[in-house]
Design a protein around this nucleic acid. Sequence first.
DNA 1: CAGGATCCGGCATGATACTG
DNA 2: CAGTATCATGCCGGATCCTG
Lengths: 122, 122
Amino acid sequence: MDTDDEFRIELPHRELLDQILDKWSLSVLNELCERPCRFNELRRAVPQVTQKSLTATLRRLERNGVIEREVVSTRPVAVRYRITPLGKTLRPPVDVLLAWASENMPAIARAREAFDAQAGSD
Amino acid sequence: MDTDDEFRIELPHRELLDQILDKWSLSVLNELCERPCRFNELRRAVPQVTQKSLTATLRRLERNGVIEREVVSTRPVAVRYRITPLGKTLRPPVDVLLAWASENMPAIARAREAFDAQAGSD
DNA sequence: CAGGATCCGGCATGATACTG
DNA sequence: CAGTATCATGCCGGATCCTG
């Protein structure tokens, strides 16, 4: 029973996951889930991210509606990022995934060692 | 132990997610969840992936223990990939995530439109 | 059939300098 | 403080050719 008539242009979720689960998004969302943050607060919270990448990440997350950007017109200007209701709903699925990662980290580590050992003895 | 150290080397899960949730992994895992596949079967199932990327993806997934590679020494040689028990445990978390994606796709689409419209009026 | 090896282009990422 | 602009680059992914 071959149903090869199904058009499969790669999962539509793929693009979405790329936007929300990319390199720095989880760290940023993790911070913003606890409290609203300013730009440089986030930089300090995630020291490895460069300013450029952080800007890109924030823009992307904002565009997808999971975080909000609020500009406070004080003297030098202040920007506060906070998570949106939509962004909060992202937490449980991500936690499930991270739970899986934590739980299976040892098994995966073992698998890697076995694989690398076998590859090395070749 | 001081807390001022920059010991905060990004989430340990980050690297794991990169390996398992990368561009083609979900499509491949999705196929292998249904049935074991040979190399070119997978190529047909995921037409967009190149041979190189597919090889890399399979290697990576195999190294992390979520799929298995079985070489059948027939004449031209046959290789069968199948999902492992560990790989099967990955399904629920991924499904939860994809469910979230499906459920919130409309909201995200709206957020994007709003964002783009505002950006366009600049 | 199932890959390995190689070349190459694009984009993501990083470092640096500058601005409102 | 919160970015933008620019340049350099590294790596991913695609295309092509070759092998057991």
